[in-house]
């Protein structure tokens, strides 16, 4: 074996230099991390409106006070889903229709299709829901991985780097958020006024027990889509079917949570524009078949209701009258669950 030129310094000394250099670099990184984290925490309302709403609701949920004001004999309804729930389910209206037999909370989180973890956090924080309404299917079980599958697919220690980087640097969208905030604030009366506006929107959402009208995406007069408005991706002759698989880790987790915290799940219809798809059957038989023998899961109504464009503020979300329409339909569908 040959040796490289004369060894300049002992390996231990070199190692000490390297460790010191990396240590200094990491210290700088940590110091800056705290500065960025502080800025991010100190000015929460520069984040996009959607994120402000999500953060406010998650924070409220973490306090364990979603049903703090509810009476013991009231059913506690938590409604999970994405932005369609956020803008479609008016908790106060639902409770009014129930004549006080329910205390409901809208836990629709915009941009979030994953709710199993949110239900777990809600229950763990002491929010004692009795009825969980769902509009989205839970993730289907991953395919069985045979030896051949393993030999012909990438070896991955985990699914994706994206959530990891977001958890290490929760403030990583800050430059973007700030730029967008500054750009938008010009049309909203300036930086301070826009900041206050965002804060008030979050406070209003909490006051309305999670309901929020997505004003930012409404571009038509009176917040109503024109009646002839359609999208090229609409397929009014096709029926969309929600696909449920009653197995897999997520399903098992949901079932375990229901047993542990004593609540039940109700798959309820979502809502769509009339032009979007054809009318679904009154109930999805395949879903009913899947959930047969699963007493903690119930299917109520069709996969979706179709509403006229006047009930929509944009192509996906209801306006305020649309939300009342949906909430009323939901009450009529579920009222047998609650005693007056």
């Amino acid at each position: 074996m040959q040796s490289e030129q004369a060894v300049p310094l002992k390996a231990s000394v070199q190692a000490a230099f390297i460790l010191r250099g990396m240590g200094v670099f990491l210290l700088e990184v940590v110091a800056l991390w705290f500065v960025f984290y502080w800025l991010w925490s100190a000015f929460p309302y520069i984040r996009p409106g959607v994120q402000v709403i999500v953060d406010a609701k998650v924070e409220e949920m973490a306090k364990g006070e979603l049903f703090a004001g509810a009476k013991p004999d009231q059913a506690k309804v938590a409604f999970f889903g994405h932005s369609q729930v956020l803008s479609g389910f008016v908790s106060d209206e639902f409770d009014r229709l129930s004549g006080g037999s329910t205390s409901s909370y809208n836990l629709g989180l915009p941009g979030e299709n994953e709710y199993v973890g949110v239900i777990e956090r809600m229950a763990a924080a002491g929010n004692k829901a009795t009825h969980i309404f769902l509009i989205l299917p839970w993730p289907a079980p991953p395919p069985a991985r045979s030896l051949w599958y393993r030999l012909t697919h990438q070896i991955k220690w985990y699914e994706s780097d994206d959530p990891i980087i977001h958890s290490i640097f929760p403030f990583r969208t800050m430059p973007r958020d700030l730029a967008v905030f500054l750009a938008l604030s010009r049309g909203k009366g300036g930086v301070v006024a826009f900041y206050n506006y965002s804060r008030e929107a979050a406070e209003m959402t909490l006051k309305d027990r999670g309901y929020y009208f997505i004003e930012g995406q409404s571009f038509y007069p009176n917040d109503q889509l024109p009646e002839d408005w359609t999208l090229s991706t609409d397929k009014p002759d096709e029926v969309y079917a929600r696909e449920i698989v009653a197995s897999g880790p997520d399903f098992d987790k949901l079932e375990a949570l229901a047993k542990k915290y004593n609540f039940q799940y109700y798959l309820v219809p979502t809502y769509q524009r009339r032009h979007w798809r054809a009318a679904p059957p009154p109930i999805n038989e395949e879903t009913v078949k899947q959930l047969d023998g699963k007493p903690l899961f119930h299917v109520l109504g069709p996969d979706y209701w179709r509403y006229p464009n006047k009930d929509f503020a944009d192509h996906v979300h209801t306006n305020e009258p649309g939300a009342i329409h949906y909430t009323t339909d939901l009450w009529n569908l579920t009222k047998h669950l609650f005693k007056k």
Binding site: M1, Q2, S3, E4, V7, P8, L9, A11, Q14, A15, F17, I18, G21
Partner: peptide, 12 residues
């Protein structure tokens, strides 16, 4: 075949 020693400069 050459032995490589830990070197601060190379590492950096």
């Amino acid at each position: 075949r050459t032995e490589h020693f830990l070197s601060y400069d190379r590492f950096r």
